[in-house]
């Protein structure tokens, strides 16, 4: 059992490979989370416009990309688009797929936050001469983000975990590297090591999330 799953010699051999994978997973996360947040913020801000010409397409967009499995989206971009003469490369495909998918999720979270801010806040701001945009930037968004911070963090956790999808387009992130090491050594220890690395990476975020959620519950009492 220990020989199979926790083999020290194999671990030593696989460690540099896995470390390289960790580096790429971090780089991917650092690209994908800000992209998703930016996309989500754009969607949430658009949703504050009351025009049906904005609202309906926006709703369709968000629904579509929340219902579309990100793995399918990624494979379509990577393996489908080349048939139309568009070869984007793994990194770009991951960036686009995550922008579309997680942007829609972040967008819904932020929209809920914006809608949770009392309308009187905007009225007070406008009554002192602030423009719509100034009221949004200085009054609404700070309160909106604070209100949905646990949800934003929870979504971010999911996004970091989802970066393992990049392994299917041969991007050498943590899971991909672990599988490489596994096939080199004919032993599953590298997969166990990758799981441990994911856990160590994400556990502090999970703890932070629990604390935020507890605080949110306490403040509602």
């Amino acid at each position: 059992m220990i020989e199979t799953f926790f083999n020290a010699a194999i671990m030593a051999q696989a460690w540099p490979i896995i470390l390289a994978g960790l580096g790429n997973t971090l780089a991917l996360s650092l690209m994908v989370v800000p992209l998703g947040l930016a996309g989500g913020m754009a969607l949430a801000l658009l949703s504050t416009l009351r025009s049906p010409w904005v609202r309906w397409p926006l709703m369709a967009w968000v629904d579509f990309f929340r219902a579309f499995p990100p793995l399918v989206l990624l494979i379509f971009l990577y393996a489908g688009l080349p048939f139309a003469g568009l070869e984007l490369g793994g990194f770009a495909c991951v960036g686009i797929a995550f922008f579309l998918n997680t942007g829609a999720y972040y967008g819904e979270v932020l929209r809920a936050g914006i809608e949770s801010v009392a309308p009187g806040q905007i009225e007070a701001a406008r009554s002192t001469g602030l423009t719509r945009l100034q009221a949004l930037v200085w009054i609404v968004l700070p309160q909106a983000v604070r209100a949905v911070l646990p949800d934003l963090l929870s979504n971010t956790l999911e996004v970091v975990k989802l970066t393992s999808l990049a392994s299917v387009v041969a991007l050498p992130e943590l899971l991909f590297q672990a599988r490489q090491a596994q096939s080199l050594t004919y032993n599953p220890t590298p997969i166990v090591a990758a799981a441990a690395v994911y856990f160590l990476l994400l556990w502090p975020l999970v703890r932070l999330l629990s604390r935020l959620e507890n605080r949110a519950v306490a403040s509602r009492r």
Binding site: A118, G120, E123, A124, R126, S127, G129, T131, I139
Partner: peptide, 18 residues
């Protein structure tokens, strides 16, 4: 927005920025 600086308003529910 310029005009509104000259017209102060106070609301029932205060509407302070928390």
């Amino acid at each position: 927005n310029h005009a509104r600086q000259r017209i102060g308003m106070v609301f029932q529910s205060f509407n302070l920025y928390p």
